[in-house]
Structure formats: structure tokens, C-alpha cells
Computed example of a mutant assay.
Amino acid sequence: MEEEMASLEKNKTFTLVNRSPGQRVLRNRWVFKLKLGDGNSSPRYKARLVVKGFEQKHGIDYEEIFSPVVKMTSIRVVLGLVAYFDLEIEQLDVKTAFLHGNLDEDIFTEQSEGFKIKGKEDMICKLEKSLYGLKQAPRQWYKKFDSFMGEHGFSRTMIDHCVYIKGLSNGDFIILLLYIDDMLIVGKNLNTIKELKCQLNDAFEMKDLGSARYILGMEIKRDRASRKLWLSQEKYILKVLARFNMQDAKPVSCPLGAHFKLSTRLCSSRGSDTDDMENVPYASAVGSLMYAMLCTRLDIAFPVGLVSRFLAHPGKEHWEVVK
């Protein structure tokens, strides 16, 4: 918590002001998380001061909130280029990414619990920069980062607005992929990548994770001698199986048995079936499978798409197919 507050003060995220009569003030809270590494590193304890963004009102506290992230297809394409051309691939993580975004609106929040300044308990915080929990925080961070990349000669691809490319005079090039606060940097020359890392670290406080090994729940395994690269979500899939108590299930070669014929006639109707299905985490299970499908398990695309049609009123037969 002290590290988080020190980071907020370093970034000059807010200034203390007197509360005006009828002033609209958002509440906040502390959120704690244990972030697990890739198995080789020790877990990290994180604390975040988060504004209760659900109290915000459109047109008063925010306008646009959309922020793009890199597409999984873009990640796979670039990783394919890395393997084929034997390129260097490095990974960076932005510390407190959302704190870098500038706000267009006047937003006020309470002083954080445990860090109220003595003698100034009645004062409130006027946000100068975005804070976690604000609806517009991801968009403001993306706008700040996009502006930085443009100033340094990078062009944004039209097909994916989170893929940046820069060609150099010696035939070298750099590709940067951005997924909120995670970055993959690809290039021929490691020194060129290190130069970009220094520029990024000067503008935003970064954590250099070295050669990419783990990104968005996917483990990256590489054999440079044979120019091959593998993506694995084994840990994620095992975690999902344990979450739905399916860790002892038997594997099957075909994701969808030929004997399953799904239709809306099988959807739960009023009565005991509906009551039973209300306690079944159908949507959560389908969403977990969908993330695996988008990242590495393209072979289950058809059955996941099929069971997604019945999210509104799933029946028992639909749940059997999901399992």
C-alpha cells in the first residue's frame, strides 16, 4: 500500500482541495492481489487503490471509454515471424500503467483509507491523472502511449491498432505489441530493442522481463536451433478444470461427440429444470473455454461457438456438452 501511494505521489496523480457544497465525490477502496509468476519466480503481493467507477455518470464523469488491445491473431502471426526469421523477442510490463493517462474531466475522490493526512481529513482529492477503476482509465492510458509511439517514429497498423512498426535505415525493424500494460518487442537486433526499452522506461516506469517466456497466461517455449516456437496454456487449462471440478475427467479425442444434437428445444423451461440450471456456472465455463480457444486451442472453436448460442437459457443437455 505504501508503494502504491508513493507511486501516486511520484506521478502527481492528485492534489488535495477543499470540498465544495454539493461536490460530487467518488469513493475508493483498496484491492489486494497475489500475482503468480511463471513457476520460476516468486509470487508478488500487489495493492491497488481503485476508484468505485460504477458511481460515475456518463456525460458528467466520462464520455468515451473504449480502448483497444492487441488481437490474439496478431500475437500468433508475430510469434510465427519470430520463429521463422529467428528474431529477438523481449517483454516489458508497465508499472501502474493507468496512472499515466491524463484526464479531460474534473473528477474528485475521497482520501484513501489509512492514508488520510492529519488535520486535512475533510479535504478531497482532485484527480490530475487517471486512476484504477475509472471507466475512462484504459482509454486515457492508450491515448498517452499511442502519442508517445507516434512521436518516436512508429506507425500503427490499420488492421490492429495495438501493433506498432518502425523501419530503420539499415534494414532493421521493430514491432511492438501492446495488451494494456504488457508489451512484446520484436526485432532483428537486440541493441535496437534495448534502446527502445530505455526510451520507454524514461517516459513510463517499466519492468524489464527479459526474453519473453510467459504472456497473457500463455507459456512461450522456443527452440532457436530448429526455428520452432510453441505456445502452451497448460497451467490455465488445469486451473479451469480444477475450478469446475473436472480435473479427474477423462480426455477425449473429439471435442464434440456426434451423438449431441443441440437445439433451442433443449433449453430449460419453467419449472424444476430452470431452478437447477440457475445454480450451474454455464456462462462462466463457456467464457473460460473461449479464452483458451482464442489463444491456443483453435480446435475447439466449433463446439465453443455452438454452446455459446444457448447462454440465455441453457438446458441440462447443453451443460453436458460443455463438460
Rank of each mutant, 00 (worst) to 15 (best):
residue 51 V to K: 02
residue 296 T to Q: 03
residue 159 I to A: 15
residue 151 E to Q: 14
residue 15 T to S: 15
residue 194 K to C: 10
residue 280 V to K: 13
residue 267 C to W: 05
residue 49 L to W: 07
residue 91 Q to A: 12
residue 248 D to L: 08
residue 189 N to A: 04
residue 100 H to W: 10
residue 83 A to H: 10
residue 301 A to G: 01
residue 33 K to S: 13
residue 138 P to A: 07
residue 191 N to L: 13
residue 309 R to E: 04
residue 150 G to W: 04
residue 146 D to M: 08
residue 89 I to F: 06
residue 75 I to K: 03
residue 234 E to G: 10
residue 87 L to M: 14
residue 69 V to L: 07
residue 202 D to I: 00
residue 272 S to H: 14
residue 93 D to C: 09
residue 165 I to G: 06
residue 320 E to M: 13
residue 209 L to H: 03
residue 68 P to E: 02
residue 277 M to A: 11
residue 66 F to N: 05
residue 65 I to K: 12
residue 66 F to V: 04
residue 214 Y to V: 00
residue 60 I to P: 02
residue 209 L to E: 07
residue 291 Y to P: 03
residue 106 D to Q: 01
residue 269 S to H: 14
residue 47 A to F: 06
residue 39 G to L: 05
residue 299 D to S: 13
residue 62 Y to G: 03
residue 183 M to G: 06
residue 270 R to M: 13
residue 228 K to F: 11
residue 223 D to Q: 01
residue 143 K to W: 03
residue 251 P to D: 03
residue 200 L to S: 10
residue 306 L to W: 04
residue 196 L to M: 15
residue 215 I to V: 15
residue 100 H to I: 11
residue 47 A to G: 07
residue 20 S to L: 14
residue 143 K to E: 04
residue 119 G to Q: 05
residue 102 N to S: 01
residue 65 I to H: 09
residue 270 R to H: 10
residue 176 L to G: 01
residue 82 V to M: 01
residue 7 S to M: 08
residue 218 M to N: 04
residue 310 F to K: 06
residue 68 P to A: 00
residue 177 L to D: 11
residue 178 L to H: 02
residue 114 G to H: 09
residue 206 M to L: 12
residue 276 D to K: 11
residue 171 G to M: 10
residue 247 Q to I: 09
residue 309 R to P: 10
residue 287 G to I: 08
residue 226 S to C: 09
residue 204 F to Q: 04
residue 305 G to H: 03
residue 254 C to Y: 12
residue 281 P to W: 09
residue 145 F to H: 04
residue 120 K to L: 13
residue 15 T to L: 13
residue 167 G to I: 13
residue 214 Y to C: 08
residue 173 F to K: 02
residue 100 H to F: 15
residue 250 K to R: 14
residue 138 P to W: 08
residue 146 D to I: 02
residue 301 A to E: 06
residue 1 M to T: 01
residue 201 N to G: 05
residue 305 G to C: 08
residue 67 S to P: 01
residue 179 Y to Q: 06
residue 31 V to G: 03
residue 207 K to W: 02
residue 153 G to Y: 10
residue 218 M to V: 12
residue 208 D to R: 00
residue 181 D to A: 08
residue 109 T to G: 06
residue 270 R to Y: 13
residue 139 R to W: 08
residue 79 L to Y: 08
residue 58 H to D: 14
residue 249 A to T: 09
residue 217 G to N: 06
residue 227 R to S: 12
residue 21 P to G: 01
residue 70 V to A: 10
residue 314 P to N: 06
residue 92 L to S: 02
residue 89 I to P: 10
residue 308 S to I: 00
residue 187 G to I: 02
